[in-house]
Design a protein around this nucleic acid. Structure first.
Lengths: 150, 150
DNA sequence: ACGGATTCTCAACATGAGTTGACGTCTCCT
DNA sequence: AGGAGACGTCAACTCATGTTGAGAATCCGT
């Protein structure tokens, strides 16, 4: 494998991946200040927007336990995400769905749809696709490449 | 302080528990310098015996990522061991729900529904409810509190 | 195209994480 | 008993972590 710089995924790469995959609303990522402010307002440790940027850029790796906890909590992943690569991969596989389910109406839809017959599910899927078309959303769902290098 | 060992979830308590449970030779615990020296000799970060003592005593909590990794590696536990169990368990529960949904078309529905307007989501929810009725599924589903904390 | 507001980026600075060195205590050996 | 060595404990210090503030770049309404 021609994996040049990042044989193992660095903290910066993981954080960057989180920024790219779990965004609040369609289109835009969280801003650094948004992350910092939210963490602070939830009783988390004081953290500056600049520092979040430094971590994402790789200028600073090696944050403290509390800051790791806070960032993990913000993005809705266990702190182990930043450590164990095996867990990282497992979470990555679920991230898109995870962030989708964070939206309450969608969670409701998923839960209510559970148990329906295959036929009905197909019907509903078809309906969703048509609505997506009407609202001008992309036809093929790919939220970007697996973000190899940075 | 009421509790002896094991009960509390602070970092110091966990580290203390590790010292007590995993000892090298019968009878004696690892010495602080032994821990520090071993970590250093294995290519880990520089760490002082005094610091290990401070962490165990609770004088210093909040170590950096590298030091947590090193200590976890030394005692043979995953780094997640040092983090808050409550948060970890909550996320794990969420992930369990996800894996339950993983192999079903419901996943597709949730992903595709993400980004739709509130109005469309309401329409789809309504449609699902009607189909549920047709298929004789229960009317009200309570999936527990939304856990808006995250 | 032109302000104005927002976000990103950078360099200088402050704070706390982590180290160093010394002292007190305990144990083991002679 | 006495001394050497090892370990635990503490206070003072160092430097990397994390912050502050200000300057580019970008986005948005007019």
């Amino acid at each position: 494998m021609p994996e040049g710089d990042g044989g193992e995924r660095t903290l910066a790469a993981k954080l960057n991946h989180l920024f790219r995959t779990v965004h609040p609303r369609a289109g835009g990522e969280y801003s650094f200040e948004e992350v910092a402010e939210t963490i602070r307002s939830r009783g988390g440790p004081t953290i500056s927007a600049t520092y979040v940027w430094q971590l994402r850029k790789g200028i600073r790796d090696n944050p403290t336990k509390r800051h790791l906890e806070a960032l993990a909590a913000f993005f809705g992943v266990p702190p182990a995400y930043f450590f164990d690569d095996e867990i990282t991969e497992r979470i990555d596989a679920e991230l898109a769905l995870l962030s989708a389910l964070r939206d309450t109406p969608i969670r409701q839809i998923a839960l209510r749809a559970s148990g329906l017959s295959t036929k009905s599910l197909e019907t509903i899927t078809g309906m969703i696709e048509r609505v997506r078309e009407l609202e001008g959303l992309p036809d093929s769902d790919d939220s970007g490449p697996p973000a190899s290098a940075h």
